[in-house]
């Protein structure tokens, strides 16, 4: 059965309809979309598209973006480097035109890893250069730092047998990367022969005449 209102109540029915129209209009107005209403897949894609500086700034906009920045892939960058300056002894990271100086303490290294975890969960780097050493830039530290890095070319430099050994271990974590190595000393023949194939290998001797062992040929 269809309910028909009495004729004299028509104005109130019209008023009701008019109110309904207003409420529909205002509810549409109120349901304005916010960027955080967009699909998760889109927001992740957006954060893969913007630069590192923009990621850092988005982190400061609100808590939701702070979390999103930490949980997402940062996209592609040309170069990254981590090494200790031989003159000043300062450990530096270069990434996307930004330089991070790492305090030479355990606390400094922890802060560095924490900062990285707050800026991205993963990253793609065309070429990454590292120099390990025996006291500050150790294997575990760099391994921890580059977790979830996709690296095209992995380059390293070593001055001692220990550094060489650690560098090979780190490189073996990235079997799909192209490996390049620079040695500023001449290891013995056995160690030289144990180095896995490199796309590019350079050996710089400190003496004018560096003797290459005959066993290599």
């Amino acid at each position: 059965r269809v309910y028909l209102p009495p004729f004299n109540s028509l104005p109130s029915v019209l008023a009701h309809l008019s109110l309904s129209f207003v409420s529909v209009t205002s509810s549409r107005w109120l349901s304005r979309m916010n960027i955080l209403d967009l699909p998760d897949v889109f927001l992740r894609e957006l954060l893969r598209t913007v630069g590192l500086k923009e990621r850092a700034r988005l982190r400061r906009t609100c808590r939701t973006f702070e979390k999103l920045v930490a949980e997402t892939h940062a996209g592609h960058f040309k170069q990254g480097q981590i090494y200790r300056d031989s003159e000043t002894g300062v450990v530096s990271l270069f990434l996307a035109h930004a330089k991070f100086t790492i305090a030479p303490t355990d606390e400094g290294k922890e802060k560095f890893i924490r900062t990285r975890c707050r800026l991205f969960s993963a990253i793609s780097i065309e070429s990454f250069y590292f120099e390990l050493d025996e006291d500050l830039i150790k294997l575990d530290f760099v391994r921890n730092f580059i977790t979830n890095f996709e690296i095209g070319i992995l380059q390293c430099a070593a001055r001692t047998d220990e550094q060489l050994e650690m560098s090979i271990q780190l490189m073996s974590d990235y079997p799909r990367s192209q490996w390049r190595m620079e040695l500023s000393y001449l290891p013995d023949a056995e160690r030289l022969l144990s180095i896995p194939p490199m796309a590019n290998m350079k050996i710089f001797g400190s003496q004018e005449n560096t003797q290459i062992p005959a066993e290599l040929f």
Partner: peptide, 14 residues
């Protein structure tokens, strides 16, 4: 950061 908040219509909750 302020311009980003304005463009994306975000409220700072920090």
């Amino acid at each position: 950061v302020e311009e980003m908040r304005e463009i994306l219509q975000l409220e700072c909750d920090f």
